[in-house]
Design a protein around this nucleic acid. Structure first.
Length: 574
RNA sequence: CGGGGCGUAGCGCAGUCCGGUAAGCGCGCCUGCUUCGGGAGCAGGAGGUCGGAGGUUCAAAUCCUCUCGCCCCGACCA
């Protein structure tokens, strides 16, 4: 492709609305253009890389036994009501109406559609397992789109779904997908870490996220030297031991004027936050429940959600809290709290003489002890794990890193097949729901993650496998006939050799073109200039390296071919 | 949805507090000359209903009201 014929609008300055490097570079290098918040046009250069990633995904999915199909973006609301997700997915769902005023969702994911398809088509275990996938634009009405394509409202995703007759078959496919994902990201040149995760709105029990390690990542990973790794939300953790060794005292009510946050109360009473127990109310579907947790810890709502098995979970409002506890927010406690389910986090174990809200404005209770002063029937792991907690598998200390989630795989079990009544007949002629798995990769996010991982102050440094072009030919002076004749010649030879080549035929000064070359990050640059040509040479340079290699012009093509296959191997191995 | 901020030329910004010679700068774009191996110099030029709608005023980018959009910080997820 000749630069002058394509459309690569590069920019010298960072866009004002970009925060992270990948967003800045994707705009500056002319990969994409924002239309609206979280909505982007993929320009020719950006699209080429997206297609490269898609191709790798296709190859690996096909190799893993999955088959591609394409489902509709527009999905009737009835299907979503059947699974209950019309409400559960809630505001994230991009909803539209047709002219008959019928509700549709723009697909954020396709469990409903695929399960509906299969329930009508597959009745026998003989057709299982079946793995289907698609690569498609997804819509999610994100509360806050940000970081360019990293959290967009419209983005490209590969989603795969598998159907099985039993758990064992699902396990096998899950493993195969796990391996396929590992290979996919490896081939994209990314170093990813599979970590255990929470399943969120998709549901299911076992799930792994594939994270690209990056400080700008939105996900927190807790890991241990023993190999345990999980997202903060998905992590189990043991708390570092804290046991109060003192005589049980008698409960007392004290006034704590204007002290309604943990910080204020602990300061006022001059106690460790670990002596305080927070009582947090949630509305779980229609019911209000109370969670008790140690003052220094946060509730992991995902865990609460999973344990209660409710479909919606929200923090109770101030009015609801006043209604159930009799006191404004900040003064609630378990003592005397009636008629409601109360679950305590494991962090309460070992505590004595604790401080809790008195369910009375401006008052707390001190020296509270259970089961003397209140009873808790149920203890669960509900706290958000954090660095410094102990590894659930070996007991050593967990450390924290950040990452970008580029893929996630789930064992769904029968969640969707049950709610959509998708059943098959097993060998015994017995009807049972399909056992399902689902597997997603954020294609556009993967591209952004690659840039996060591979860039320098001058621009992008594409891994060879996903670069929009493999070679950039840069003639220094396009009005010099000898230079252009040579550049054109190389272009033809390289294209004939099956390479993807961009020829910068713009009539610009050399320095300007070098800057653009670095910005768009084509891995291999072939510089053609009068001076070198007179010595029978051209210059070859890798974007990721500093040194320029002078090479005889008749050896250049074979050398480039060699370097490209080496780079390809290098990026696949990294 | 709460809290904060911003909308002035394709991009990045100043001007707004204190209404009137503030429609301005840099990049980019066009023309010409010079230059030509790391974002060139000079000269000339095109381009803006100052997000939109009302209002106040002799006079509004500037003040008021409403509205739309965008960004950042918190609860979501590939």
């Amino acid at each position: 492709m000749r630069w002058s014929q394509t459309f690569i609008p590069t920019h010298k300055e960072d866009p004002a609305d970009a925060e992270i490097i990948s967003h800045k570079l994707m705009v500056r290098a002319g990969l994409m253009h924002k239309l609206s918040s979280g909505v982007y046009t993929y320009l020719p250069l950006g699209l080429r890389t997206i297609k490269k990633v898609e191709q790798i995904v296709r190859q690996e999915m096909n190799a893993a036994g999955a088959v591609e199909l394409l489902m509709p973006i527009m999905q009737p609301s009835e299907l979503w009501r059947e699974t209950g997700r019309w409400d559960v997915y809630g505001k994230e769902l991009m909803k539209v109406k047709d002219r008959q005023n019928r509700d549709f969702a723009l697909g954020p994911t396709h469990e409903e559609v695929i399960t509906d398809l299969i329930r009508g088509q597959i009745r026998s275990y003989k057709r299982l397992p079946l793995i289907l996938y698609q690569i498609q634009t997804k819509f999610r009405d994100e509360i806050r789109p940000r970081f360019g394509v990293m959290r967009a409202r419209e983005f490209v995703m590969k989603d795969a779904y598998s159907f099985h007759e039993n758990e064992a078959s699902l396990d096998e496919t899950y493993q195969r997908m796990y391996q396929a994902y590992t290979r996919i990201f490896q081939r994209c040149g990314l170093s990813t870490a599979p970590v255990m995760a929470d399943s969120g709105a998709i549901g299911g029990d076992v799930t792994h996220e594939f994270m690209v390690l990056a400080d700008t990542g939105e996900g927190e990973i807790l890991s241990c030297e023993c190999g345990y790794a999980a997202t903060a939300e998905g992590a189990q953790s043991q708390l570092a031991p804290y046991k109060v060794e003192e005589k049980i005292k008698s409960m007392e009510k004290v006034e704590t004027p204007e002290a309604h946050t943990v910080e204020q109360v602990t300061q006022f009473l001059n106690i460790d936050a670990r002596r305080l127990v927070k009582t947090i109310f949630y509305r779980c579907d229609e019911q209000i429940i109370a969670i008790l947790i140690r003052g220094d810890r946060e509730v992991n709502e995902a865990k609460v959600h999973r344990i209660l098995g409710c479909s919606t979970l929200e923090m109770a409002t101030a009015e609801e809290i006043l209604q159930v506890s009799g006191a404004p927010v900040g003064f609630s406690g378990p003592v005397g709290l009636k008629g409601m389910q109360m679950i305590a986090d494991l962090s309460l174990k070992g505590l004595a003489n604790i401080v809790v809200g008195a369910n009375e404005d401006q008052c707390h209770m001190i020296n509270v002890n259970f089961p003397r002063d209140f009873t808790v029937k149920r203890f669960e792991d509900l706290h958000l794990a954090q660095a410094g907690d102990l590894c659930p598998s070996c007991g050593k200390i967990l450390t924290s890193r950040r990452g970008i989630e580029v893929g996630q795989i789930f064992k769904l079990g029968a969640k969707y097949s049950k709610s959509l009544k998708a059943k098959f007949l097993d060998q015994n002629g017995k009807e049972s729901p399909f056992i399902m798995g689902c597997y997603g990769i954020g294609i556009t996010r993967t591209v952004a993650a690659a840039i996060e991982q591979y860039h320098d102050q001058d621009g992008i440094i594409w891994p060879m496998t996903i670069a929009p072009y493999q070679v950039l030919i840069l003639p220094l002076n396009v009005s010099d006939e000898m230079t252009m004749a040579a550049a054109d010649g190389f272009y033809k030879q390289l294209v004939d050799a099956g390479l993807e080549v961009l020829l910068d035929d713009r009539d610009e000064r050399a320095g300007f073109k070098f800057k653009d070359a670095d910005l768009i990050g084509i891995p291999l640059r072939l510089t053609v200039g009068e001076r070198s040509l007179r010595q029978g040479k051209v210059e070859v340079k890798l974007r990721r390296q500093n040194q320029v290699i002078k090479v005889d012009r008749d050896k250049a093509v074979s050398m480039i071919r060699e370097m490209i296959s080496e780079e390809r191997l290098a990026s696949e191995k990294s």
